[in-house]
């Protein structure tokens, strides 16, 4: 290959690789260094809080919100050790954590759903547990028709699954599912299309769909009706508050962020993650 040809060829390769590298890759570290808010904790809250953080960043240029996950306990530990400014805990503060300051930004609630034609009106907690572990496999055992139960479970990594398993003291390996679903809407469609199915989804979506003619029914739990209101009041058993935790009562930038996260300005982000915002 003569030298000029080789040269042009090399040049072309360099050019192409530059075009490809110039495609919009995101370098999170390349942003301007300014004031930083470090938030760590619950993986349930992380997607929501990082969305809120992005919106906060656009409103306050020069401030960087850094969201890391690792579970609610890490969130608490990090603020106690001063490694983070704000901790995320997808539960209420425990009694030995009362010296910390917690601000609820939203509630997470899930409901058991059945097909509208299913005559079963209420299930006790241990009946639901038996259905999900496969020791009750027919609706006739719990006062329904003689039909095999179709158990609908959630895919791994979803906070709904985590809250459900936590409440019923189950591990995902114990669950004998017939259908595994991804998002809430798919779960609702699956149950609406199968008279013998039982599933669980976020309460917000379920209530909206049930009142808009989709064939599902929300089951009460421990005689408390599954509604957005009971979740908001913290009365519904299968729910939890999403809490931002700080070491001392929030002040300055941290306070601005928490107030922002509780304000109606982020309600759309909260609803998009199927959580229940604080106010109507």
């Amino acid at each position: 290959m003569p030298f000029p040809v080789f040269f042009i060829f090399t040049l072309r390769i360099i050019l192409v690789s530059h075009i490809l590298w110039a495609l919009p890759w995101e370098y999170p570290n390349a942003r301007a260094e300014g004031e930083r808010l470090i938030i760590t904790g619950s993986s349930t809250m992380a997607p929501l809080v990082s969305e809120i953080g992005k919106r906060f960043e656009t409103l306050h240029p020069g401030i960087r919100v850094d969201v890391q996950t690792g579970g609610s306990s890490r969130g608490i530990a990090d603020i106690v050790n001063g490694l983070a400014d704000i901790g995320m805990a997808s539960r209420a503060l425990k009694s030995q954590e009362q010296h910390l300051s917690g601000s609820v930004i939203a509630h997470d609630g899930i409901t058991i759903i059945l097909h509208t034609s299913n005559p079963v009106q209420e299930l006790a907690d241990d009946q639901i547990r038996s259905i999900y572990t496969g020791s009750i496999t027919n609706w006739s055992h719990v006062g329904g028709p003689d039909a095999a139960i179709t158990v609908v479970n959630k895919a791994e990594g979803r906070s709904t699954l985590e809250l459900f398993l936590d409440y019923f003291h189950l591990s995902n390996r114990d669950v004998h599912a017939h259908v595994v679903i991804g998002d809430n809407e798919q779960g609702i469609k699956t149950v609406a299309g199968n008279p013998n199915a039982i599933g669980y989804v976020s309460i917000g979506t379920a209530q909206y769909d049930a009142t808009h003619g989709i064939g599902i029914r929300l089951l009460s739990l421990q005689h408390i009706p599954a509604t957005i209101e009971t979740v908001r009041e913290g009365r519904f058993p299968l729910s939890r508050p999403l809490t931002l935790v700080t070491k001392s009562p929030p002040a300055g930038l941290i306070k601005t962020f928490i107030v922002f996260a509780q304000s109606p300005q982020v309600h759309d982000l909260i609803l998009k993650q199927y959580f229940v915002p604080l106010q109507e």
Binding site: A148, T150, V179, Q186, T190, G193
Partner: peptide, 20 residues
């Protein structure tokens, strides 16, 4: 997929539960 979920899966479910 939507058609399958709403029509086909319930049909198969009637024949051979659960359907999906």
């Amino acid at each position: 997929g939507f058609w399958g979920l709403m029509v086909l899966v319930p049909l198969i479910g009637r024949w051979h539960p659960p359907g999906p």
